[in-house]
Structures are given as C-alpha cells and as structure tokens.
C-alpha cells in the first residue's frame, strides 16, 4: 500500500466496563477512500468517531492504543482536540446543517478559524459549494434557511461545510442511510470526486456502496477488524469465513 495517512495501532475502546473495540490495527491510505463495513453494532461507527476523538464528548469512553496521524498520536493527552477536528472533518448519518442560511453554514468553519475577510469568505463559499455539486442548485438561494433544502442537498451542504475548513481527512458516518437512491448516487459521485484531494473514510451498511466508492475495505465484526484489503479482494475473494458469509449476504 502507498503512503499511510492514519495508522491505528492496537486500539481498544471501552464504554464503562464494556469493551466495544478490540485490538484494532488499520492503516488508512493517504488520498484513498476506505470503507468500514460490518453488521449493526460491530463497532464501525465507534471506530470512525475515535478518529477525530468525538468520544471525548462521552464521559464513560476510554481509549487505549495509538492512532497516528502523520507522526503524532492523536490519543496522546497533549493533543489539541479542536485543532485535530479541523484536520479531521466529519459528516454524520443524519444531515445536520445548522439552522442558519446556506451561506452561513459553509462560512461557519471559516469564521471560527478566524477568516473574516468578506470577499474571501464569499469566494470560498462558492468554491466549496461547487466542489460539493451544490452551486447550480443553490446559488440563488444562499440566504435561504438550510433547513428548507432537500435531505440530499442538506447532506451535500454538510460536506461543503466540512471541506470549507480544508481538512486533510473526511470521515463519513453512513452518510446516505437517510437518503433516497438518487441523492445517494450524487453523494457517492461527490465522494469519488474528492478522492486524492482528501483522505476519506466511510462507514456504510450498504455493501454495493462500499464496492462503488472504496479503494480499501475493512470488514468488522463484534468490535474487531476481521479482514482488511483492497475492496475488490474483500468482495471477490474474501479470505476469512466470516467475511465470505457477510459479503454473500448470509447475515447482516
């Protein structure tokens, strides 16, 4: 594999006494799309949320092991979490634009990062909306509430909002599970267009989606990574019995 952007080493995660992730080893390739698949409750979303330390909001969560982002272990106590989350953005399962205008949603991240130059903000709003294939649809409605957009448009707006802070990595937590097939295919197209520019990790319960977008796929089961490899290999010639049964649709 090429350059590793994020290297997860011996990661364990506990909620209280319950162990949710067990000894995870995973390398996320720079500029690639990595899919995390597995049945409900296997820990794929939990693993994803470890990568930008969203578990910090959860007082019971305890992580051990290492997650190396470039050369820095983000689980180390001296990590600036606010800074980390600017480098590692996230798109959630349910589209969650802020109850503000379309433009303000995209501008939010820039503003908290100290960019107040209006023409520059305007220019970057347009650029981000273009990158997320939303510009044509909303260019006349930048001052409309984002909550009036359709679900698919809202999710693309959330992606625009995430790329506006120029992260290095974008995490997607089942980004299409609340969307119809047409909106889903637009999001997939968008994710593919952002390949190389960003390192992307997508959690999905949709195996076709993983095959359509991902370069690499990790299959998880009961908190462990069972098998990890190139997407084609995972789906065409899985080595592990569990992976074989899962991708064949025997359980899920």
């Amino acid at each position: 594999m090429e350059k590793i952007k994020m290297d997860i080493q011996a990661l364990d995660l506990f909620f209280g006494k319950k162990q949710v992730l067990k000894n995870i080893h995973l390398g996320i390739g720079a500029g690639k799309i990595t899919a995390l698949i597995g049945p409900s409750g296997c820990g794929k979303s939990t693993l994803l949320r470890s990568l930008n330390r969203m578990h910090d909001l959860h007082p019971d969560a305890r992580l051990t092991g290492k997650i190396m982002l470039d050369d820095h272990n983000i689980l180390h106590g001296n990590t600036n979490v606010v800074h980390l989350r600017r480098r590692v953005g996230m798109v959630f399962q349910k589209p969650n634009p802020f109850p503000m205008t379309v433009a303000d949603n995209v501008a939010y991240g820039m503003k908290i990062n100290g960019l107040h130059d209006k023409p520059e903000v305007r220019r970057r709003i347009e650029q981000c909306l273009r990158s997320s294939f939303l510009w044509e649809e909303v260019s006349g409605e930048l001052d409309k509430s984002a909550l009036d957009l359709s679900g698919g448009q809202q999710q693309r707006l959330c992606i625009a909002r995430a790329i506006a802070v120029e992260p290095e990595i974008i995490l997607y937590d089942e980004p299409c599970s609340a969307l119809d097939p047409i909106s889903t295919s637009k999001i997939e197209e968008l994710i593919l267009s952002l390949r190389e520019k960003f390192t992307q990790v997508i959690v999905t319960h949709n195996m076709q989606q993983a095959q359509r977008v991902a370069d690499y796929t990790a299959f998880m089961y009961l908190g462990e990574v069972i098998e990890f490899g190139e997407t084609q290999q995972i789906f065409q010639s899985p080595r592990h019995e569990l992976t074989k049964n899962y991708v064949a649709g025997h359980f899920g």
């Binding site: 606010v82 600017r86 959630f92 969650n96 802070v165």
Partner: peptide, 27 residues
C-alpha cells in the same frame, strides 16, 4: 437543541464557547 447541531460544530473544530455562542444559543 438537538445534539447533532453541537456534534456538527465540534466536528468542524469549534470549541465549547464557539459552539454555545454561534450554534446552541441561536438555535
């Protein structure tokens, strides 16, 4: 205020104060 607004704000690198002033209170 729905928790997902706050999550979205934190995920963009906002701290608690920024999230409170720019997202939670306006909402």
């Amino acid at each position: 205020v729905p928790g997902h607004y706050k999550e979205a704000s934190y995920a963009l690198g906002a701290n608690r104060w920024e999230t409170l002033v720019h997202v939670t209170l306006p909402a």
